[in-house]
Computed example of a mutant assay.
Amino acid sequence: MVMTNFLQKRKSVRDFKNKEIARDSIEAIKNYIEEIEKETETVSFKFYENGSIIYNGLKGKAGYSGVMIEAPSYIALMKKDEEKESCLNTGYYLEKLNTQIVNLDLDSCWITLDNVDDETKKNLFGAEGTKVDYVVAFGYGVGKKLFTPETTSGRYTMDQIVFKDEIGNEISADELETTGLLDIFASVRFAPSHKNSQPWRFVMEDHNVVLYMEKSDEDSRSLVDMGVVMFYFEEMAKTIGRYGKWSVILEDQDKYLKVAKFSM
């Protein structure tokens, strides 16, 4: 799947069929989790094939508007600590895994556990369960799709998130076209973020893309969003032959956090 197309059509599903997930898909996801956990020490995953355990444990405590999402299976993400880089990796690797799930023709939905008490988390996820802030529900979706065109209004335009040399300096579409990044920036606007805050700002500096985050009262949540957008940018860059990786910086700069640099 072309990543730019995937992101522009990205959807989150809240209703799932009461249907077991195909065994080959289950094994593929388990193998992919093992691969991801070899890449990082800051996050780990727990796979719950029998989704009723998680659904019943979180019913009335998590979900949307107090309604827990019922799905055939769930994956819990455990974050090592609350350091900034761990928050970045939470978004990066959770969305990396989510993309693999969707590539298996499954549907998925992130669920935050903000209002779930520590005792419930320990009962469900073990002694280290207090470090679980997110679970992914997945299966074969039915019903209304989210992130459809009518629900993606309010997205920033490119001139609001992409700049030259410093935030606030305009960069032309022609210049972005020359670098091959025009389509990437046009698509990355559709990356999901908490409350649609879209905290990311990109600055073109010579042959580098520097990523900034707009600070807020929810910086930890925004850092997770930044990890998501970093993943999508890397994947889309591969489609134009740029196989770089973000170099993490995490440097405070007044209203912004200088997060990372991508060398072109």
Score class of each variant (00 low, 15 high):
200 W>P: 13
223 L>N: 07
116 V>R: 12
218 E>I: 06
122 K>P: 04
114 D>K: 08
75 I>T: 09
207 H>A: 10
16 F>H: 07
169 N>Q: 15
34 E>S: 09
74 Y>G: 11
170 E>V: 15
11 K>D: 09
13 V>Y: 03
49 E>D: 09
212 Y>A: 04
254 D>I: 14
22 A>Q: 04
36 I>L: 07
218 E>H: 06
53 I>W: 11
178 T>K: 13
67 V>A: 15
154 G>I: 08
161 I>C: 04
106 L>M: 04
124 L>C: 01
128 E>N: 09
182 L>Y: 08
37 E>P: 03
45 F>Y: 02
253 Q>R: 14
158 M>S: 10
86 S>F: 13
194 H>S: 12
229 V>T: 15
90 T>H: 06
15 D>Y: 10
146 L>Q: 15
152 T>I: 08
212 Y>R: 04
142 V>H: 14
218 E>Y: 02
51 G>M: 08
228 V>Q: 07
12 S>H: 10
55 Y>H: 05
206 D>F: 01
125 F>V: 04
59 K>A: 15
162 V>F: 12
93 Y>N: 02
195 K>V: 01
190 F>Y: 15
51 G>R: 06
176 L>D: 03
178 T>C: 09
90 T>A: 13
219 D>A: 13
49 E>A: 01
30 K>C: 00
180 G>T: 10
100 Q>N: 03
175 E>V: 00
247 S>C: 11
95 E>I: 02
136 V>P: 09
77 L>F: 07
50 N>D: 04
46 K>A: 07
261 K>Q: 07
246 W>N: 12
38 K>R: 13
8 Q>P: 04
228 V>I: 15
260 A>Q: 01
157 T>I: 03
212 Y>G: 03
33 I>S: 03
65 S>G: 08
221 R>I: 12
30 K>M: 09
44 S>A: 14
188 V>D: 14
151 T>G: 03
227 G>H: 06
182 L>E: 07
211 L>F: 00
202 F>Y: 12
90 T>I: 14
198 Q>F: 11
41 E>Q: 04
15 D>C: 10
251 E>F: 11
189 R>L: 09
140 Y>M: 02
67 V>I: 13
48 Y>N: 04
45 F>P: 00
204 M>F: 05
85 E>A: 15
197 S>T: 07
